[in-house]
């Protein structure tokens, strides 16, 4: 693939993931208001915290426990935000030097910008993937949060148009080209199973964090490291 084609591919992935994920901002805004926050509090969360899992965790605890549950709400959101610190180490070489650029990149370091960036084949296309995905989601997520908070309980529209299904398909498209050897396939299957099993057991956001440990379990001892492709794979 030429460098230009790789950049275009990074843009397409950014747009698909960015638009699908941004749509969820509507449900966050609506749920935040339903949890007792006002419109501005919902918007400040999306503007400053800007990490979907942590935001949903915070309003989830506040909805059931009110302001008295503040410490638990803060702890839950912070715990879920820890993975962003790992993403920051991962994408730091992609961003390169310059404190202002790194400060801005830090704010945009989330699941999706990291996933799209690291799924690209070259440094140039990784940069496109990170900044395009981060910027699209930042603008989209905040606009949709405001819209959702204003519209309140009209969030069923997101589902009516199938946008919730689009997000899963977008992630599938990102992982698909990486499944050419046994090792990543084993990790993909393993983490999917772990996430599914933990979904009912752990608070929102944690299943993804624990499932990511499958990469450590397989990667550190270098299990399933056969190089050939497509033969006898799961």
């Amino acid at each position: 693939m030429s460098a230009e084609a790789e950049r275009r591919a990074a843009w397409r992935a950014s747009l698909a993931v960015g638009l699908a994920v941004s749509a969820y901002g509507v449900s966050f805004g609506a749920l935040a208001v339903a949890s007792g926050l006002d419109i501005w509090q919902a918007c400040v969360l999306s503007l400053v915290m800007f990490s979907g899992g942590s935001q949903f965790a915070l309003i989830g605890v506040l909805a059931s426990g009110g302001a008295a549950a503040g410490p638990a709400a803060i702890a839950g959101a912070t715990l879920l935000g820890l993975r962003n610190g790992l993403y920051a180490i991962r994408v730091s070489p992609i961003i390169g030097p310059g404190w202002a650029k790194r400060l801005l990149a830090g704010h945009l370091t989330i699941d999706e910008s990291t996933a799209v960036a690291t799924a690209q084949p070259t440094l140039a296309s990784q940069r496109v993937g990170f900044w395009a995905t981060g910027a699209i989601i930042y603008v989209g997520w905040n606009l949709m949060t405001l819209l959702g908070a204003v519209l309140g309980d009209l969030l069923s529209d997101v589902r009516q148009f199938g946008l919730d299904a689009a997000a899963g398909a977008a992630f599938l498209g990102l992982v698909w080209p990486r499944l050419r050897a046994l090792q990543p396939i084993a990790v993909a299957v393993g983490s999917a199973v772990v996430a599914a099993v933990l979904l009912p057991a752990l608070p929102q956001g944690l299943p993804v964090l624990v499932a990511a440990l499958v990469a450590v379990v397989v990667g550190v001892p270098n299990l399933f490291a056969r190089r050939d492709t497509g033969e006898g794979t799961a």
């Binding site: 992630f171 499944l179 990790v187 993909a188 983490s191 999917a192 299943p207 499932a211 990469a215 990667g219």
Partner: peptide, 16 residues
């Protein structure tokens, strides 16, 4: 491990 983390993350997000 960092590369595999991307695969694990994406797969878990698909499920969620």
């Amino acid at each position: 491990t960092a590369e595999l983390t991307t695969v694990a993350l994406l797969s878990a997000l698909i499920v969620v």
